[in-house]
Nucleic acid binder design. Structure first.
Lengths: 303, 303
DNA sequence: ATCACGTATACTCACTTTGAGCATAAATCG
DNA sequence: CGATTTATGCTCAAAGTGAGTATACGTGAT
């Protein structure tokens, strides 16, 4: 029974550039960076940190463990040696340069970007396909329909941006993503529907990371790890919107940021954009000490 | 470099009996149940489930992955083979019988039970010891003092029951728990302060589980996994209070439970207690389907 | 019987939070 | 100069949240 188990560290490394949330990828965008866990590392976290910084020369701001994956039937190859993947989420500053190796995460999840309204892709392709899948469910039909509505925000249910993972899993179950087709016998009635696929279960890991980050920005001041040292409030807002995949009410966003005293003015202003120049702010690092524990809610617009 | 890495599954198995939150333990309370990860398992989760149910004959309701631990310096023995522990949180129904093997989690964390006000232990022993530790911190003094206040709810800061892990880690750093003394050279000024210790880093894992559960009950209807099929609202409340380690405003608790339609009447009443008989309720399993996603907030009393 | 006590429920109330809209100010661009 | 764009200040209503008050309905003791 006790064969060797390989342990890998996988990183979901996130940055925001040009208004797009990006994830670091290899192989032209099909794989997340990963490496073997080495016994020399004192801690898993430090192992990952070392390894990412060596490989990317990016300073890693925030790091948190995401999840440990070991499902046998998700690798795509049954015969592959059993691997345990410990996935981490890492946040880093945008650099502007070296866009290579960073892909917008909406390439993989086009249905997740609701910044300019619900993507037509959902209404045109995904919803009908999922409806067919629910239909074919026999006694499970009704249950499936409910799940579909709840996760994709159909039929009156509001869109919940934190359900990224559940949506991906649903599409997987329904055989609508390429990764699912790999694991099952090909069937005429199933075809991958949308979004770029990735190696093994990397897209699932990415979905986990997105979901976690979308949840986290609402109660912890982690967005700042993704921002340059100085920024305008609109830039900050755009960053949050990029991550959340939906728009934010501007005035309320500012109210919140100021109420919570997350930032302080630098005294300078920026006139890079059109319109009235905006004040520049910097993150008040003091808040990390003050309220490392408390909450930081971000108001998302209803419509 | 590539030596074999052992992978263990560790379970934080929780039940509530007699108004006390309990965790399943072995060796008279010093160890959490754990077992090797077997390659035969399709999923980590199913591996754990199989193994716990075989060992305890308890049906496992809710299972969720907690965290993967691999810190080298926390096992207590430097020479031990490197082990990766994947910890899971499991919830199960109270059975009434076989109390053996279940310990109240407040045996390990006596400072976490605030149901009858802040434990004197904090004021008498922990706060002074932590103050001394902060004092001894040199330039870090102030930072340490702030951390202490924030995590333990001192000097005006409100108590936050979700910080169980942070509190344990703080006590560990300050050398005030037995586990910390194991790893360091003995020093005259350091003595374990309170709470029963456990093997290796099991107490840390338990702290992680408690923290997670305390957070979770506020936005997901998981308490019901710990309840018998029929219960009164007060029993439900007591269960939540046992987990949270603090009291709840009765009327608001009921308002919430009813608003969210989490339960439905069975038609029967219970007169096991003194006072007016209470209606019996059962969990509306429908909510799991309806709003598997939405929130379930639980109102905790301020004082 | 009735009184004290413990529990169960029903309502009220003030305050905060949150989503949203209106209005004005200060720049740029033709 | 007027249109456009961005920044920023202020108001408002609805919902949520942490309490408190009052009353109903059982039990067991006197």
């Amino acid at each position: 029974m006790e064969r060797a188990v390989a342990v890998d560290l996988i990183a979901v490394l996130v940055a925001v550039t040009g208004g797009e949330p990006r994830v670091m990828t290899l192989d032209g965008g099909s794989t997340l960076p990963s490496g073997p866990f080495e016994l020399a590392h004192r801690t898993l976290q430090s192992g990952l940190r070392d390894w990412v910084e060596r490989q990317t020369h990016h300073p890693l701001g925030y790091v948190e463990q995401l999840y440990t994956f070991a499902d046998r039937d998700r690798t795509g190859e049954e015969s592959a040696p059993r691997t345990i993947s410990i996935a981490y989420l890492g946040l880093t500053r945008e650099t502007g340069e070296e866009e290579r190796g960073w892909s917008s995460w909406y390439d993989y999840f086009p249905w997740e970007d609701h910044r300019s309204g619900p993507p037509v892709l959902i209404e045109r392709v995904i919803a009908p396909a999922l409806a067919r899948w629910a239909q074919a469910g026999g006694v499970l039909s009704e249950e499936r329909r409910q799940r579909v509505s709840a996760t994709f925000g159909l039929e009156g249910t509001p869109w919940n941006e934190e359900l990224t993972l559940q949506r991906y899993e649903l599409l997987f179950e329904a055989g609508l993503v390429e990764e699912a087709l790999r694991c099952a016998a090909p069937r005429a009635d199933r075809a991958a529907v949308a979004g770029r696929s990735m190696t093994a279960d990397h897209r699932r890991i990415l979905a986990t990371g997105i979901a976690r980050l979308r949840a986290k920005i609402k109660y912890r001041p982690v967005v700042f790890e993704l921002m340059p040292p100085h920024f305008t409030l609109l830039q900050l807002q755009r960053c949050v919107e990029a991550l959340a995949g939906r728009l934010v009410h501007k005035q309320n966003f500012r109210r919140l940021v100021e109420q919570q005293e997350l930032v302080e003015e630098t005294g300078e202003t920026s006139s890079e954009t059109a319109g009235r120049p905006a004040k520049l702010f910097r993150f008040r690092h003091a808040v990390l000490a003050e309220r490392a524990m408390a909450g930081t809610k971000i108001p998302l617009a209803r419509t």
